[in-house]
Nucleic acid binder design. Structure first.
Lengths: 244, 244
DNA sequence: CAGTGGTCTAGACCACTTT
DNA sequence: AAGTGGTCTAGACCACTGA
């Protein structure tokens, strides 16, 4: 049933983590659903409660599950609010997190550029969907961004077009429509000058300094699922980073 | 001897972590020194090995100690290399971490500005030391920065003046000369245009976009110990962020 | 109240490092 | 061989949740 081997190279709790991770990735355990209680799971997998708990703690740290004393263990819902809290690090000058409003300005599909292929680990020329968005912070246009998605992962890309869904995080849409659970990201940050087009979009002078964010997002299976290039007007906002 | 109470609000392993943290902060256990083995420590503190291990794991995660099977547990040395690996997130376009060369251009002491007082949790007008530096990446001047330190924490600020020490991380100097162990930082990032002065220093056009990094650093006791404002020329480098 | 996760303990065994 | 940290187990007890 399980391929658990004691004298494996990896510790038992890592093997258990991988098994449970796979159950979530495969959709056997769906988002928001309760998973079996500790004693039951431990018995099924043939490990002690302590080992199982250690695996569950690692899944919780990766935000794949949520545990609450007395309630149970649930596969993360990745609601809009949670996704924003984890992945949207913009604050205003008072230090308060802000919620963006998003407006899609264009959707296209075409062969990946060399840059996109490299970052998304695609073969040269594989198809990608591209979404262009404008995002408002506290009522003002502050972010211009382009999102590139491997077409193979998002067959027949269905976009949320209702105004209500436009405000929601797109990661929630990935999960609902394509079963992709986003868990981590790598970003490269730099400074750039606003082009004419960006200046018009953001209402800033041509050549104004913008914070350029190039993000590659990964799902629970470790696949790169999104390349996002954002330009943030920092006249009224900051990007927050914590180092531990 | 210890004030460990079982029905405390905090779990035992958190209380143990705090006790061990205090021994490091107070200098009872010095940087690089081995601490007692698990059985000895557990007996001394009157807790089980499991509880002690959990506390040690948390200290290790905060980079305050290092553990190696067969060798023992050591208070972190915070060598130059380790400090850079944790706190210096600049990469070149190949994605490789780069080591900065640092040149101090000025040192002054004076009353804190309102901004400095707020970020460093000082009373208005308390004294701060200020260090201005220019930093080179791969041979070129790329960073202009000012570091503000609470004078109360750095009595008679002794600066490393030998050329060799100039290259080392200043956090290593904090530890060696003032016993301050740096463990975490919060940063606000934005984009700014180069002033005439910065342009001259960095060899870029006036108005060129720079990545502006405002960092507050905290020590093992949770005190803010440094406000650092850096301006990074991103023509040849990126600032790397990981989100988990 | 029953059932859940969270804490704490005690002890066995293993893998690694040093002498 | 002796001593270290790393893994795994089994079980007791507590704190929280919901019916």
């Amino acid at each position: 049933m399980n391929e658990l081997r004691r004298p494996d190279a990896r510790p038992l709790y890592v093997q258990v983590e991988a098994i449970l991770n796979e159950r979530i990735v495969s959709g056997e355990w769906k988002s928001g659903q309760a998973i079996p209680a500790e004693p039951e799971l431990a018995a099924e997998l043939g490990v002690s409660a302590g080992t199982l708990r250690r695996a569950l703690a690692r899944l919780e740290q990766r935000h794949l599950i949520e545990r609450r004393q007395g309630r149970g263990t649930y596969v993360s819902q990745q609601t809009s609010q949670q996704a924003l809290g984890l992945f949207f690090r913009v604050r205003n000058f008072a230090g308060k997190p802000v919620r963006p409003e998003s407006f899609i300005t264009g959707v296209t599909t075409g062969p990946a550029t060399p840059e996109e292929a490299a970052r998304l680990r695609l073969s040269p020329g594989e198809a990608v969907h591209r979404i262009d968005r404008r995002r408002h912070l506290e009522g003002e246009p502050r972010i211009a961004e382009r999102i590139a998605l491997p077409a193979a992962l998002f067959p027949g890309l269905s976009l949320p077009l209702a105004p209500k869904q436009l405000g929601a995080e797109i990661y929630v849409h990935y999960r609902n429509a394509h079963g992709i659970i986003v868990v981590s990201a790598e970003e490269d940050l730099s400074a750039a000058s606003a082009t004419e087009e960006e200046a018009a979009l953001l209402g800033c002078p041509v050549g104004a300094p913008l914070l350029l964010i190039e993000r590659v997002t990964f799902d629970a299976a470790g696949r790169p699922v999104e390349l996002r290039v954002s330009r943030l007007d920092t006249r009224a906002h900051r990007y927050a980073v914590e180092i531990v």
